[in-house]
Design a binder for these strands. Structure first.
Length: 423
RNA sequence: GGAGAGGUGGCUGAGUGGUCGAAAGCGGCAUCCUGCUAAGAUGUUGUAGGGUCAAAAGCUCUACCGAGGGUUCGAAUCCCUCCCUCUCCGCCA
């Protein structure tokens, strides 16, 4: 959500920026400006009538003894009210339309974000590790089935496709990854949170999932609750409608949560394996910062996520998403992509975004830069640190031996009673 | 699930139909004062939207007393619905 006042003061700036994301957004923008104009006009009329109404009421209060005068004024009041009712209806109508449209406007991207229509225009920032290129490496699902740690059929039996059962060492590895990542985040000063996994509509709207992406999420029938698609939603909304004292910034949270996504638009993508599931586990890192430090904190959060991959010794690369690939609410976003030998390619395992004040406006989270200042909106930042299922899949490929067993990364061995190999 | 109580500004808390955006206290901010500290004096202090203005300041209008409706010329105050909190009882991991 943008500041409407700013929108109308420098429309050319917004049109230019929005068109870089998607040309059709300019039309939406112009529609919003027009609605804003109409809304302000009708509001002026309504305000005027409301003033008249108040004046009449006050006048009656003052002239209680004069019966004739009161009667006349009452009639006048009734007249004003009937006019006002009509205008207020239009006012409400326009306000709703305006807000509804404005909620569909994505964030403005940073100048540093490369222009481009799709992921092919993302910019590679760096690479880490040596990707193994060996044609005998089996896809993670084959190894997982062979080792008896994935059970795809029973996942489907219990739920439906894109649900998988982890068993034995599979379950243990998942839990070891969870603990390792949370422990690592703790050393970086992130406070661990265990939030509700079901979240309400206000929360989903606050972080930008709604209204645009309704349909991508599971929702409870007859309830106003959604299954959170990411812990970003509950964590950021912890501070909705709050003014955070300056000395508490930056606020840093981490959380393990299961995440639920319908994957509605991904019908034929990644149907095999555990890369794209309806339910997956994730450690999320969230920061709430002042405007001045947000850029620096974003870089650091990304490094915190990278460090997990480095400690797990998984080769990865870091890309800066282009205007056509970056998320709705983000103004700048790095993706971390881990190497998958069986696919001979890098696949996304973390997405670290700076949202600027975009989410803060929707969630109404503020801080005072100085005690005397008026509260202003914070910046919010978040990233996966990391997606656990994808990390497990990457381990099954990058740590695979020619025998078909899987070595346990050093940093996880302590979480698994010293186990060095899954066979 | 049953019974009751309640939701007012950053906080505490008054206000049961008219000049209430809301007393009082606390806190915050500013100035002054006392050799420092503690204390004291005075003033000031909500949010959002609109108008005016080149812009800011200022001025001004409107809305907001959990949310949404209703009654009335006029609602924090009366009526209805919903949400939330607390207490007791029941049930339960």
């Amino acid at each position: 959500m943008h500041d409407l006042k700013d929108l109308r003061t420098r429309p050319d700036y917004y049109k230019d920026k929005l068109s870089k994301r998607d040309k059709s957004l300019v039309l939406l923008f112009e529609e919003i400006l027009k609605l804003d104009q109409q809304k302000r006009e009708i509001q002026a009329k309504a305000d005027e009538l409301r003033k008249k109404k108040n004046d009449i009421a006050d006048e009656i209060g003052r002239s209680k003894d004069n019966k004739d005068k009161v009667e006349t004024l009452k009639k006048e009041g009734t007249d004003v009210n009937s006019k006002l009712a009509e205008i207020e209806k239009g006012e409400m109508d326009l306000t709703h339309k305006l807000i509804e449209k404005a909620m569909w406007l994505p964030n403005i991207v940073c100048d540093s974000v490369p222009e481009g229509e799709d992921e092919t225009k993302n910019k590679e920032i760096s690479k880490w590790g040596n990707p193994r290129i060996e044609n005998w490496v089996k896809p993670h699902w084959e190894t997982g089935i062979k080792l008896g740690i994935f059970d795809f059929e029973r996942g489907v039996k219990i739920a439906e496709s894109r649900f998988t059962v982890l068993s034995g060492m599979g379950a243990k590895l998942e839990r070891a990854l969870m603990n390792f990542m949370l422990d690592n985040a703790a050393t970086k000063g992130y406070k661990e949170i265990f939030p509700p996994i079901l979240v309400n509509k206000d929360s989903m709207t606050g972080t930008g999932q709604l209204p645009k992406f309704d349909g991508d999420f599971y929702k409870c029938e007859n309830e106003f609750l959604y299954l959170a698609p990411t812990a970003e939603v509950p964590l950021t909304n912890l501070h909705r409608d709050e003014v955070i004292p300056l000395e508490q910034l930056p606020v840093k949270y981490c959380a393990y949560t299961p995440c639920f996504r319908r994957e509605a638009g991904a019908a034929s993508k990644d149907t095999r394996g555990i890369i794209r599931q309806h339910q997956f586990n994730k450690i999320e890192l969230v920061k709430i910062t002042s405007v001045e430090t947000s850029d620096k904190e974003h870089e650091e959060l990304t490094k915190d996520a990278e460090e997990i991959l480095q400690k797990l010794e998984l080769p990865y690369r870091k890309t800066l998403l282009c205007t056509g690939d970056i998320g709705f609410s983000a103004m700048k976003c790095y993706d971390l992509e881990v190497w998958f030998p069986s696919q001979n390619t890098y696949r996304e395992i973390s997405s670290c975004s700076n949202f600027g004040s975009f989410q803060a406006r929707r969630t109404n989270i503020k801080y005072k830069p100085n005690p005397k200042d008026k509260p202003q909106f914070v910046h919010t930042i978040n990233g996966s640190g990391l997606a656990i299922g994808r990390t497990l899949a990457a381990i099954l490929e990058n740590y695979q031996t020619e025998k078909g067993t899987v070595l346990v990364p050093k940093v996880l061995q302590g979480y698994l009673g010293g186990a060095k190999e899954v066979s």
